[in-house]
Each structure stands twice: as C-alpha cells, then as structure tokens.
Nucleic acid binder design. Sequence first.
DNA 1: ACGCTTCCGTGCGTTAGCGTACAAAGTGCC
DNA 2: GGCACTTTGTACGCTAACGCACGGAAGCGT
Lengths: 221, 221
Amino acid sequence: MTLQHDPRQNHLLAALPRDEYENLAPHLERVDLTLGDSLVESGKVMRHVYFPTDSIVSLLCVMEDGDSTEIAVVGAEGIVGISLFMGGETTPSRAIVQSAGTAYRVKGQVIKDEFYRAGPLQGLLLRYTQALLTQMAQTAVCNRHHSLDQQLCRWLLLSLDRLPTNELIMTQELIANMLGVRREGVTESAGKLQKAGLISYHRGRITVLDRLGLEARVCEC
Amino acid sequence: MTLQHDPRQNHLLAALPRDEYENLAPHLERVDLTLGDSLVESGKVMRHVYFPTDSIVSLLCVMEDGDSTEIAVVGAEGIVGISLFMGGETTPSRAIVQSAGTAYRVKGQVIKDEFYRAGPLQGLLLRYTQALLTQMAQTAVCNRHHSLDQQLCRWLLLSLDRLPTNELIMTQELIANMLGVRREGVTESAGKLQKAGLISYHRGRITVLDRLGLEARVCEC
DNA sequence: ACGCTTCCGTGCGTTAGCGTACAAAGTGCC
DNA sequence: GGCACTTTGTACGCTAACGCACGGAAGCGT
C-alpha cells in the first residue's frame, strides 16, 4: 500500500492538472526527513526543491553569532527552496526539519524548466511565494509586539495546522531555538499553558488538549 | 529638461532591454509622492504598481490594534505592489511614502500582461522579489535580537542607501512608528548618535555626518 | 542497579524597552 | 510680540525577557 506516501498529499502537487503532474512525476524522488535535518544551509548552493507531505520544515534566519529566528513554517501546503526558481541559487536562510516525515524532491534544473514553461505550476508557485511573504510579515510584527506566551501559542498552532495528529515531538530547547528566545522562557510559558489545561508535555512530546483554548490566547497573527 | 525625471532612474526599468522598455513606456505614469502618502492600504485592492525613482517607500505590516512594524524599504532599486503579479490582489501590508519624491506607476493589468509574457521583466521582478524576501528575513531577525540603537542605525543606513543626499526629512515620531517602538526610545537612541557625532538632527531633519561610524555600530543585517 | 545524558523546573539579579506624564525648545501664524 | 502647535528631552516606576547557575527527574545503556 503505497498510497500512504502519495506525493499528491502535498497541496501544490495536488493542485496540478493530471497531465502536468504526470509530467513531473518521474522526477519526484521520495526522501524521509528526520528531525533536525538541514535541507538548506544558509549561503550554500541548493540542488533540490522539496515538497513536504507529512513533514514540517522551519525556515530560519541565522546570524553570524549563531542567533537565529524562525521566519516561516512550511508543511504540505508549500515547498522549500523557493529561491531556486525565483532566481539566485542561495538563500540567507536555513531550512530545518521540525517534524520528521516524508517529502518529495526534484532537481533544481527540473523545477526551473517547469517553472519557466509558464504552465499552471508557475502560477501555483508564485501564489505560494506570496503567501510565504505574508507569513513572514506576520512573524516579524508578532516578534515585535507580542508576548512570548502568545508567540508560543501561535507557533503551536502553526505546527498543529500542518500535522495529522495533535502531538508534537519537540523539546523546549528546540522550540526556543526556533523562536529565537531563551529555553527558560519557553519552560515558563509552556508551564502556564499546561496549568491552564491547554497542552500537556513530557520530555519532548507535546500534546495539544484544547485547540480552541490556544486560539483564544493567540494574537490575530 | 525632463531628464531629471527619467523613469529609468529606477533600476528595474533601467535593466530592461531598450525594446522592452519602449514597450512599457507609454503606460508609465509619473506621480509625485509626498511624505505619508499611502500607496497600498492593507487589504484593499491595488490598481497600480509603483517604480520609485527618487522616492522611498516603506512596507509596513499593520495589526488590528494599530501597532505596526516596517518589514521592508523600497527605493529606486525596486517596485511596490509585488502581489499584483504574484497573484492575489491584496496584501496584508501597507505601503507608506517615507521620503517624498517621484515614482512611475503602471496599471495592474499592464504589468500582469508583461509579466506573464515571460520576457526579461519577469526575471527581473522575480529576482527582486527574492531580494525583498531576504530583506524581510533580516528585518525579522534584527527585530528579535538587536538593540534599538542598532536597529536605528540599520534604518538610517537603509534609507541613506536610497537617497541622493545625506539628509532625511523624518521626525522621531515617524521613525518610531516605522520601527514599531516608542517615540522616546528613538529620542534616546538618536541622542546617543548625535552625541557621538554621527548624525545631527533638528526638528524632523536628520543629517548623517559619519556614515562609516554608523556602519561600525550597526549589526550585520 | 548503576551511572550518564537529556530534558525540564526554579530562582536569582540585571537590563532594555514600555507607559505615562510633563517640561522645554523651536516654528508658524496672526 | 503673542499664541498655538509640533517636536524633542527627561524622569520614574514597571514588566518581560535575559544570562546564569543549579537541582531534580526521566529515560537509556550496560
């Protein structure tokens, strides 16, 4: 039963007309991503773009001194490696696997060719890029104006939206890294949420109990 | 002498091959922008894209409660209204004129047609969009990790890069609005810079005296 | 059962930036 | 010159988040 791993679980691939998809299909290579994998190293040349199906990837912006911040999250609704078709083969950001799972990748040249043929794929990718821009803007303003509590809620929801279950495998340390804050800060905020009965976590395993409760706490972002 | 107002002062237009440019030229409409003008209201439908020549435009992300943050700055090197050709006719961000000057605008439909003809303009716009993404990422990480002092330096330099002179017309109040911080905070930071002899300002008129000094203080962003 | 490592809790003092309030200085208008 | 308005300076208490340091607890291997 390979249906469990259909590339068309990715929404962009699913939105392609059948013939276009058949065209691309031979170039799709399945990869299993494990937590912490780095798909794109900041500044390095990229060879593939990735279409996540049941995995989640975080886009981080890393600075010279090692500090970093998550600028966007990509799941089955998107694609990792935008800059390949946007022009310029490097990005200033790093892409880290935030939730283990599967993705399908295609060679950079293939996606470029498809993109510049100006078919339906192009429109899809452009619209997704636009959505990504929006997400980044939200992140920026949220970083500026909202409390860590709210940002944590937002982060949990962003992840939850891209997950089939309500369980995240993720230590507080890692979350802190993504958000660009202290680990202790996450401990504290997560403690509040746990006390409020919204989540329960245990050694790198976070279960969301009350999604609506989280939504009530989160900012509009 | 209309050379002072040549659309090709905009770098994107300047990079077009002559025939492509001649194609577009009849649709270019000159507009004079004054400080504080709003080119794009968050959520509203856009009718034009703008190519600034000697004006500067700030892209702000505004929230429901009125708080806002600048997410990018656009000058002669770019274009305002990306989402028109990226798909989706609205943006979540607002575009405010930060420095008065001239820009050339074209109707949304025209730029779309040109874009989807997949000529040289398309590549230029895509690459610029990629650059914008990078700028936004930098802004996000800078918001998170750097002091107001550094952010102010960065902001001054970003503006300076897009200006023919070393004088900015901009009150501290407005800067604070852009950066999404308190006015008093800007007063304080600006005071430090003034004491250090890097800038001098006076009632909405900031003169940069020592650009290298600013660069020494700013973060890598 | 033992030790090791990872993960989480907690408790300091410190600091950057916020909110508020008000004073001073420059500008323009009559 | 007088008056209203804008812009900038300053002060004070407050809070969120930081940096650091430690202690405990859960899991893992042997």
